[in-house]
């Protein structure tokens, strides 16, 4: 079984982000970047399937500027076999990424595509779903457990109110939730070996995909500053404030 894992370069989750003064986006200058944590879980899962003898090859793919090769190298150090960089300076929307991934799926014919359920920067939570729809593949999102059985895959999904277990025919698309696994740390010798693993570069053009934006970003606003609390005199006033000021009860 060949596994394709899509990974995204995002701001490190420890960084306190700052909105640019002109509200055109988040300030990325001198900001530490990292592999999206949910993507890391996807890479880990793919590597575990390979180590268990259930997968033959793990291919990681990322779309973006040259810098995403850093995250591809990280994935290679964690155990992926080869990497594909789709080189573009365009700010990619989920649908564009889904189209790119579909083109890669057609070329590479993986039996399983693993993605993080969402990226911690834009929190869209849609690329996996879009890819499944475009490619006509079954999907299992928010996976907290996976089991590969003869020609199909059993996915435990975290849904509101409990767990749902699906059996998907392969090829399938799975997006990973937090509890699927605990990713390993990269070993220093593996970081060195990763440098020798193949990393191919392609472009949206070469894949025949138009990635021009379809949405217009109007403004990015930081969350409102926390205001100091107030003291209420009575329960009646509290209820009134909750209803009419905080609007958390009807």
């Amino acid at each position: 079984m060949k596994i394709l894992v899509a990974v995204k370069r995002v701001i490190d989750h420890n960084v306190k982000i700052r909105v640019k003064p002109d509200h055109s986006g988040v300030d990325l200058t001198n900001v530490k970047m990292a592999l999206n944590p949910f993507c890391e879980i996807a890479v880990e899962q793919a590597v575990r399937l390979k180590e268990a003898g259930l997968a033959s090859e793990v291919l990681v793919v990322s779309a973006g500027p040259k810098a995403v090769q850093e995250q591809l190298r990280t994935a290679l150090a964690l155990g992926a076999d080869r990497a594909l960089h789709i080189d573009t300076e365009v700010a990619l929307e989920s649908l564009a990424v889904a189209h790119l991934l579909k083109a890669v799926v057609e070329q590479e014919q993986p039996e399983l595509v693993l993605l993080g359920k969402q990226a911690i920067d834009s929190d869209n939570n849609q690329t996996g779903q879009m890819l499944a729809a475009l490619g006509g593949m079954p999907q299992g999102t928010f996976a907290s457990a996976l089991e590969v059985e003869q020609g199909q895959i059993k996915v435990t999904r975290e849904i509101d109110g409990g767990l749902e277990i699906l059996a998907l025919a392969l090829p399938a698309v799975i997006t990973t939730d937090l509890r699927l696994n605990e990713p390993r740390y990269a070993k220093l010798p593996d970081i060195m070996k990763a440098k020798k693993k193949p990393l191919a570069v392609t472009t949206p053009d070469a894949l025949g995909v138009d990635v021009s934006p379809r949405l217009r970003l109007k403004a990015v606003e930081p969350p409102p500053e926390r205001q100091g609390g107030i003291k209420v005199a009575s329960v009646a006033e509290l209820v009134d404030k909750l209803k009419n000021v905080a609007k958390v009860i009807a």
Partner: peptide, 17 residues
């Protein structure tokens, strides 16, 4: 260079956790 950053990163991960 890339390697220096990769090693720093690897150290950062395990140390911070």
């Amino acid at each position: 260079n890339e390697d220096d950053i990769a090693f720093q990163d690897a150290a950062h991960r395990v140390c911070a956790e």
